[in-house]
Amino acid sequence: MKTFAYFMSCINESMTKELDKALDQWEKDFDLKFIKLHDGTCCGGSNLDYVDPKEFLVINARNIALAEKENLDLVTSCNTCLLSLRRAKQELDSSEENKTFVNSILKKQNLEYTGKSEVKHLLWVLNEDLGLDAIKAKVKTPLKDYKIAPFYGCHILRPSSLMGKDDPSNPKSLDQLVDVLGAKTVDYKSNNECCGFHTLLVAEDASLNIAADALENAIETDADFIVTPCPLCHTVLDSYQQKALKKRNVKDSIPVLHLSQLVGLALGYTQKQLGINRHIVSLSK
């Protein structure tokens, strides 16, 4: 059994609970175990790093140290949590001064940051730790009737100096996973674009413009649905979809699935078991 510490993203505890629900359904099928870090904190959401850089560093050192205490790598299913955790890890691993500083604080909590745990995205665990062949062997219901638009989101690709997996201009990892699950992917230019999430409350019109571009682009390909490895992208593309497309007078809509739900569908779980019925835009097939 492959075991990982699982970082509980704030949004998966509120608006996108269905993401973890789907993951809970199928982890055993792959002999995977994700141990949830209930004591982990918010990663700072790509905000804390400039409001209070020291706090950003310390709380994310603490988050990673919680995984290190269990001798496990840390996995997240949110792109922005991935960015925060990996950024903090880079700042710690590249500076003894930073490491000494955070450990002087973590010591009082009986925690220590050593740098031994990797920080990974769920997509990377599936593609690399588990492997595409192993996934293919477990598929019960190949998704052959579906044409899917993969939407990677920003922080699993960029900055590539911090992520280093996919070519940010031509990402493949999600397409490869979709492929072994039996579905076809569509080629569309928005697959590596931004969803606009981080400015939804600050520059709403522009954010909805950004989301509408991606949605319209996916709809034009005649894809059955979008799949994304990020719950923040999901929130914009699903919950805000109608609002975004209304501004463009677009009547069509497109369902948006989480990565964990896509895998679950191919393993034979029902839409209800995977929480797909919680989405604002329904998946009809």
Binding site: C10, D39, T41, C42, G44, N47, L48
Partner: peptide
Amino acid sequence: TAGAKHADAFVKDIQSKGRLVESLLPIRTN
């Protein structure tokens, strides 16, 4: 500013709950 208030919410929520209180984020920002 909306941006500064939005960012500040993360600091306050980590202090009070350890997690982001998403239900209040729009009100605190705008």
